[in-house]
Design a protein around this nucleic acid. Structure first.
Lengths: 174, 174
DNA sequence: CCAGTCTAGCTAACATCGTTAGCCTGTCAA
DNA sequence: TTGACAGGCTAACGATGTTAGCTAGACTGG
């Protein structure tokens, strides 16, 4: 991703607001322009296209996500601390989380390292085993996105589901 | 979902083909009409709107998914059999799987029971414990959709990740 | 101090999308 | 024979992302 001008960063920040208010489908170039008090075509003076806009929002999301995971590290029960922070971030920013995960990433268009920084934490939580880390990530993402998408029955005890899944992983760590 | 006329069922079958060929974004009313040799507005004589069309495709997908899980049941290693069938279905029909899972379901618009039939199998695989079943579902969906979305490094050993995750669950079953 | 260039807005317009209104033609029953 | 209905059609609307081309203002070089 090329550097963003200050104005472009303002636009990206507004896009983030529109996204959180109105969801992915509400994030249109015209809606964003409205919030900025300009017209939609003017946005293209600062960002190549909508994809670049979304990539910038996603990059910022990864930075924030990584910071949240970082802040939650714990010596005892690293798995639980990771999972709690993961779930918390997703439920606090559901639209952002969906945007960050629902499509294939255009990695060369993101700020480099943001994704790595986030994914490094799951590796730590899994005691350094990459395969176990990917499985734990799968569990966390799966439970998270199924919950966000309302796929579980309304009366399902999701805390219990998380606990069962995490206990299974805890048992495989020293 | 109300009953579908024979013609509507043909249209839904064509929609499934368009979806598998061109992905969700390629499934437009006009593209579907093209394949049928008619004009887009004519589709509305048979289906209320695009959402109804997608719901019908999703319903059919759940039937097929349930059948695939059913055919794969195994006495020994029910977790492994479930997971293999799950992953296989998703990788063989990636666009359909995505359509089935990427949005909140409009349950009252689906053919009743299709979803239940599919989700019953994960409960069996988890030995009847609903919380464990949801965790297993989360693991399977998470690994599946992260793989479909190309979120893992190209050289990641995903078989190993599945094995690690499934072993963790196997260890918690009698 | 003027001329030129760049910045960042604007309007008009295009293709594509889902969708609606209204028309027409063929089939079939009363 | 007449009338209803099924299932096509065209024309059109509003929303979407995006492009082309214009313009007002700010800065900069001579």
């Amino acid at each position: 991703m090329s550097e963003l001008s200050p104005r472009a960063q303002e636009i990206v920040a507004s896009a983030r607001e529109v996204l959180e208010d109105a969801g992915p489908s509400g994030l249109s170039m015209r809606a964003l322009a409205d919030r900025l008090g300009i017209r939609a075509p003017s946005i293209y003076k600062h960002l190549a296209d909508k994809q670049a806009l979304e990539n910038a929002v996603i990059s910022a999301g990864f930075e924030e996500f990584a910071a949240a995971l970082e802040a939650a590290q714990a010596e005892d029960d690293p798995v639980g601390a990771f999972a709690a922070a993961y779930r918390r971030f997703a439920t606090e920013h559901p639209h952002l989380y969906r945007l960050m995960t629902e499509h294939p990433l255009q990695r060369d268009a993101l700020v480099p390292g943001a994704e790595d920084r986030a994914s490094a934490h799951v590796l730590v939580a899994a005691g350094g085993d990459p395969a176990l880390a990917r499985a734990l990530w799968g569990l966390a993402h799966g439970l998270t996105i199924l919950e966000l998408n309302g796929r579980f029955p309304a009366d399902a005890d999701l805390d219990a589901a998380w606990k069962q899944g995490l206990d299974a992983f805890r048992a495989r760590l020293p």
